[in-house]
Computed example of a mutant assay.
Amino acid sequence: MMNPPTVPLSSSGPRGMRVAVISDAAPGRNGVGAYYQDLLEQLAPLMSEVQLFSPRVENGRWRTGLALPLPGDRTQKLCIPNPWALKRALCQLQPQVVVVATPGPYGLLGVRLARRAGIPVLAGFHTSFEQLTQLYWKGSWRGRLVHSLFERSHRYLFAGARSVLGNSREMLELAERMGAPATGLIGTPISAEFALTARRPHGGHLERILFAGRLAAEKNLEAVVEAARIHPSVQFSIAGDGPLRARVKSAAATLPNLRWLGWLDRAALRAEVDHHDLLLLPSHFESFGTIALEAMARERLVLVSSGCGILQWPSLRPGLSVIPPEESAAMALQRLLAETPEQRRALARRAAGLALTLNERCLTHWCELLRHTVSSRSPLPSGPQSGLESALEQA
């Protein structure tokens, strides 16, 4: 077993700082929820106090002011906070900066309260609702309505923020079109569960393949099922929950080399990543694809589609395998199966080093962003040539 290096951040931490993060995503329930859960886990020891204000899921029950069912997906909720409770909690914390992660009821109330209190706001932009509405309701009146509501919410959020932060160029360009006053590229942190626990070196085999994520249309789960049909000697696993659960369970019942694992907590997911040889992410689009970075950190092979935002980070590309637009996931897997065990081991080792290096730089970058936001009244640097973005891309 190999122990990954501990991230040396003590010299760059914003000591004495109080930070509030407000999000409509429950910790660990989707990509945004996992992002801030992982970020705060590693930043908290470096600050005076940091708190996450969001819905929570405990023993399968949603803990929030009011939880409404989300049409088409019973695994997600539209959560409305208690405004007086959130206001009291922020007054008690007295944050010096507020990070608003989402454009839902929590996020919109959070930016309103922060603006009234004169607290600077950083807005996270992690999900392209424009692409989601095109995929789910293309050309319909429902799609136009949902798209309009999300765009209005984002514009309100961006108008109240000092800067809008995203983890891909595409997201930042979209934010600029929606009126963001300034934009900044941010990396994606890796949870301590994935970054700081002992990992098993890759054995060079390609016998077990894992998909992990929300079971939804944008994830292109058909490609996983097709790959399982074409490669019957390889074991495929799907971890996650979502609106396509019944379809995945049906496919798993039909194919002997495909199994559905259900939704997994972080420790169980890390154990499954370690048990498999390759992480497959054939999504139609991903703002980033955090699970791909986590699998890299565990020294596993990672195969992603050309629609995944992680490919926009040049420092990570040498550790990734890509499904080009003209290929299927099954075809791309055939190329990896044709490689030697030593070639696959070398790629996995390279991936782990690149992922852990970027994780360290991401956390250092966040500390710099928070310090700058508190100490300066001017907007954060905008555009693709800012020094912070250049430092990240040179990882």
Results as ranks from 00 to 15, higher is better:
79 C>M: 05
165 L>H: 02
143 G>M: 02
44 A>V: 11
267 A>H: 12
394 Q>V: 02
154 H>V: 00
273 V>R: 00
111 V>H: 11
211 F>K: 05
45 P>C: 03
114 A>L: 08
51 Q>R: 15
222 E>Y: 10
100 V>Q: 05
45 P>K: 07
188 T>Q: 14
140 S>A: 03
140 S>D: 08
220 N>Q: 11
308 C>V: 10
161 A>G: 06
312 Q>K: 08
148 S>K: 09
48 S>W: 07
113 L>N: 05
122 L>D: 05
50 V>Q: 12
29 R>P: 00
73 D>V: 02
368 E>P: 01
302 V>P: 08
258 L>W: 07
230 I>V: 15
103 P>K: 01
198 A>E: 13
35 Y>Q: 04
72 G>M: 00
127 T>A: 06
386 S>E: 00
210 L>E: 09
110 G>L: 06
173 E>R: 14
148 S>A: 14
159 A>H: 13
394 Q>K: 15
328 S>F: 01
11 S>T: 08
77 K>W: 14
354 L>A: 01
227 A>G: 02
167 N>L: 05
233 S>Y: 06
241 D>K: 12
251 A>R: 05
249 K>N: 07
389 E>A: 15
173 E>G: 09
22 I>V: 14
74 R>I: 10
173 E>V: 08
122 L>S: 06
74 R>C: 13
300 R>G: 13
122 L>I: 12
276 H>L: 03
392 L>W: 08
200 R>T: 15
54 S>Y: 00
194 F>A: 15
64 T>C: 15
375 S>M: 13
268 A>G: 02
212 A>R: 08
16 G>L: 08
221 L>W: 06
32 V>R: 00
144 R>L: 10
387 G>H: 10
279 L>H: 12
354 L>W: 01
318 P>E: 02
123 A>N: 00
201 P>I: 05
236 F>S: 09
335 R>S: 10
173 E>T: 09
130 E>V: 10
171 M>Y: 11
232 P>L: 04
138 K>S: 12
377 R>Y: 10
301 L>T: 01
309 G>M: 02
380 L>M: 12
314 P>S: 07
263 W>G: 09
292 A>N: 05
303 L>A: 13
281 L>H: 07
128 S>L: 13
388 L>C: 07
175 A>V: 01
348 A>N: 08
298 R>P: 00
22 I>K: 04
348 A>K: 04
385 Q>M: 10
393 E>H: 15
297 A>D: 07
289 G>D: 06
164 V>T: 03
256 P>E: 01
69 P>S: 14
253 A>H: 09
358 L>F: 09
264 L>H: 02
13 G>D: 03
270 R>F: 05
105 P>N: 08
32 V>E: 05
304 V>G: 08
191 S>Q: 03
304 V>E: 03
61 R>W: 11
268 A>E: 11
28 G>C: 06
50 V>F: 07
309 G>D: 00
351 A>R: 06
45 P>Q: 01
77 K>S: 14
134 Q>S: 14
63 R>G: 04
107 G>W: 01
358 L>D: 08
329 A>N: 07
122 L>A: 08
237 S>D: 11
252 A>C: 12
343 Q>F: 04
142 R>Q: 14
50 V>H: 04
35 Y>K: 05
8 P>I: 06
81 P>C: 10
360 E>D: 10
